[in-house]
């Protein structure tokens, strides 16, 4: 009987800890996720990792390339979809890539608990089509930090 009670208490304690952790993460998300663009259908936010990448992108990528990526993101946020799989592609594990022709990409995911929010994990300028394992891992890390239900 005693062990059963102890187990239940421990269980409640664990749940309380998990809840506290979730609340803290949600608070962190609200404090640090920067607004990328707010459209009619979707709100696009970016992680601090993406904000850091953006500074590099701004220096290295040609302006027309940046303009194309921004247009794609705006269209996605306004209409809720991009029809060309060459420009908006479902990668592994629920991750999506917004792709400009020059190789500039924005990787992200649809937030699990906040409907209508797309989170950009990071930006990258690359020539290879395939998603590299390091980018997948980077997205997973960012998602664990900003998406408590992941």
């Amino acid at each position: 009987m005693n062990s059963s009670v102890r187990f239940n208490c421990a269980n409640i304690f664990d749940q309380a800890l998990a809840l506290k952790s979730k609340l803290r993460l949600k608070l962190t998300y609200k404090l640090t996720a920067m607004l990328f663009y707010k459209g009619v259908t979707l709100e696009i936010v970016q992680t601090p990792d993406a904000t850091e990448c953006w500074k590099e992108v701004f220096v290295n990528a040609p302006p027309n390339c940046v303009a194309q990526l921004l247009r794609l993101a705006k269209r996605l946020a306004d209409s809720g979809k991009l029809r060309s799989p060459d420009q908006f592609n479902n990668e592994d594990d629920g991750f999506w890539a917004i792709k400009a022709n020059c190789g500039l990409r924005a990787y992200g995911w649809y937030h699990s608990s906040r409907r209508g929010v797309f989170v950009i994990s990071h930006f990258i300028l690359k020539k290879k089509q395939k998603l590299s394992p390091s980018d997948t891992e980077r997205m997973r890390q960012n998602r664990r930090q900003y998406d408590p239900d992941y």
């Binding site: 302006p63 303009a67 194309q68 921004l70 247009r71 794609l72 705006k74 060309s84």
Partner: peptide, 18 residues
């Protein structure tokens, strides 16, 4: 203003392809 011009350009291209 150059950024705005390029953004408008890409907007029309995307509009047409979509």
């Amino acid at each position: 203003p150059e950024h705005q011009r390029l953004f408008a350009q890409e907007g029309l291209i995307l509009e047409a392809t979509e």
